[in-house]
Every structure is written in C-alpha cells, then in structure tokens.
Design a binder for these strands. Structure first.
Lengths: 190, 190
DNA sequence: ACCTGAACACCGTTCAAGT
DNA sequence: ACCTGAACACCGTTCAAGT
C-alpha cells in the first residue's frame, strides 16, 4: 500500500472524477473548489493547475454527464428519455448542464441526437424542434431535481390535494410527445 | 432634505425594491447580501431583520417578477408570451424564478394562468399541459438570458453558420404552439 | 422597530516558491 | 509536471448591544 506520507499526484481526469462523486454527496450549491481539494488531499490552489477556473471544471462535469447519452436511433421519445435519464444520473445534473449550456448552443450532443432522430422521423424543422425539445427537457428535469431536494429537506408545503411528484412522468411524456410532433395519428399514412 | 447623518430606516418593501434594482445592474451571481446592504447604506446584518435568509429575499424577488404577469384571457400563446416577457423584465429573471420555483409547485400564478387559458380553450388535460408549458417557458427563457449574458462578455464561440439568437423567437413559438395543442397550419399562407 | 459591531466559518483566485 | 503557503478580496449568518 502507498505510504501515508507520499502525496498522490493528480491529473485532469482524477480531479473531474472526484468532483463528480462529490457532487452526488453534497449537491451543486455546496460543491466548492476547497471541498474538492480537501477530498483530493491537496491545497485549493492545486486545482488551478488542472482547470483554469471553477467554471471550466463545471463545464467538464457537464460534458461528462451529457457524454453518457447513447443515441438510441430514430425514436424521438426514447432519445428525450435518454437525455433526461443522463441528467438524473447525478445530483443536480440538470441544473449543472443548464447553467453551463449557454456557451455551446446548437453544438451539444444532446441537441444533435434529438435533431437526428427528428430528421429520421421526417420532420421538416428538425433543428428548431430539437432546440425546443431540449429546452423543455432541461426545464422539466431541473424542476424535478429541485423538488426532490426540497422534499428531502421537508421544505415542501404539505402535499396538497394530489401528490405532485406522481404526475411528473405523465407531464414529461405529454411534453415530449407534443414537441416531437406526434399528432393523434402518429404513423405516416400515404 | 434629510441630514446626511440621519440614517434612513428601511422595511421589507424598500429592501426588496433595492435588491431588484441591483439585480438588473450586477446579475444574480453577484447579488450578495453585502452588496444589497451597501446600496442601502446599512450593515449586512441589518437585512436579517427584514428577511430570515437570502433564500427568502430571493423568493420575494421571484414573486415580484411573476406578479407582473397579467392574464390576457383565453389565449394560451399570449399567456405564455406574457410569462416570458415578465421573466425578461429583469436580468436573470428566468433563472431566479426557476431556482425558486420548487417549493410552490402547482400553486404558481403563472401556471394557474396557463391552466385557465387552456381550460377555456377546451383542453381536457389543462393542468398537465400548463405544467409542461411552464417548464418549457422557464427552460427556454433561462437559456436565452444566459446566452445574452455570455454574448455581452464575448464568451461565445464565433457565431457559426447562422445567427443563433435570431431563431430563438421562432423556437419559442414552435414550442408554445406544440404544447398548447395547436394542430397544423400556424402560419397563414393562402 | 430597526440597526451596529464584531465575530464565525466559509468562498474563488493568484502567485511566488518548492520538488 | 504538479503542488504548497500565503495572501487578497470576498461570502452568508448569528447575536449581543445600541437607539
């Protein structure tokens, strides 16, 4: 085993992996450079050898989250679900991707996957639909994850007449179907 | 005029109004309790007489932003536009409302306005559609405002083949129409 | 009723210097 | 190539004490 006095050297990958694991433990609001450094047994300033800023580190985490999306082919609904599930894989994943998204508009792999599926499905405005669909998925997933967090803290205002989390899957499907252009007769008849 | 040595006393309203004005100047990321206090010529601790926490202050700002939505009747698209415009009225308005939204799911005035319009339009699943619609509007508006901010800092990766901001209105209309249940022929060409 | 002063436990980031 | 140590300019929040 390694001697306890031998400090372990890190690289970009190990820093990002540790940060992603810490994200799941503490959430985005408490994911500080100092905490990540402490987890790596390193001074905070050491992180700046690997990443120019916290923003750059968060962008890397966002890329890793969206990189796990496997394009399931021409099924638009399945693609949207795959994106949502990738966001749900890590705590506050949707908020992180959303907050990091502004820079690379249109070039994201998530949006490209949707655009491809929509093109295969015969949509004439695939790019616009893909953009709208992704905006819906990000908004939806962000709110769902926020609500999960609020619930676990008991900060919710007493569940009300009907359970709120229960209908979220239904709302997601409704939104995706509508945006995908699924009409009441979804199959092409010619 | 008031003597320069006479400190002005504040209340909940004046603190919130100052914070909202400061939001437009510095943005959500730089809206700190200490900055708000400085603008009010007051110690940071003074704010905690009026608001229990920063979170509570931000929730108040969010309420003030959404309170300006005037329900324009049974037109779903017009209602969605009114919500988007209210979010755009203040810098980072969409992100602020989105981040504050988890606690009061379903009870928001924005969602209620959409649900009313959808019911009037004869939708059988008005509540679900209203939720999906609001999630799309929040996702869309958050990304648009982020992009505006990124653009003004020159952090954008060279505009690419076609201008990215130009198509945003088109994408918004496409999304709202699809989610509102508007079937084909939205454009009048005849 | 509303605010000050002082403290506590934190932040992100820079930079010379070490190995 | 990767990290330490020290510093700088900040954070949100609490609480006794003042007026």
């Amino acid at each position: 085993m390694a001697s306890p006095h031998t400090s372990i050297r890190h690289d970009r990958d190990s820093v990002a992996r540790t940060a992603l694991a810490l994200l799941d433990e503490v959430g985005l609001a408490d994911l500080s450079m100092r905490r990540i450094a402490a987890r790596l047994d390193v001074q905070p300033s050491a992180l700046y050898w690997h990443f120019a800023s916290k923003q750059e580190l968060l962008a890397e985490l966002s890329d890793r989250i969206t990189a796990t999306i496997d394009a399931p082919g021409p099924d638009v609904v399945a693609t949207a679900r795959a994106i949502r599930d990738a966001l749900f894989t890590h705590r506050d994943g949707a908020e992180l991707v959303l907050s990091t998204y502004a820079l690379r508009l249109g070039s994201s792999r998530a949006q490209s996957a949707l655009a491809r599926a929509l093109t295969d499905a015969g949509a004439d405005d695939a790019d616009d639909r893909a953009a709208a669909l992704l905006q819906f998925v990000l908004g939806h997933a962000t709110l769902v994850q926020q609500r999960m967090h609020a619930d676990s803290y008991g900060a919710l205002p007493a569940d009300g007449p009907h359970d709120a989390t229960a209908g979220l899957d239904r709302i997601f499907d409704l939104g995706v179907n509508a945006l995908a252009g699924v009409t009441h007769s979804p199959t092409l008849r010619d």
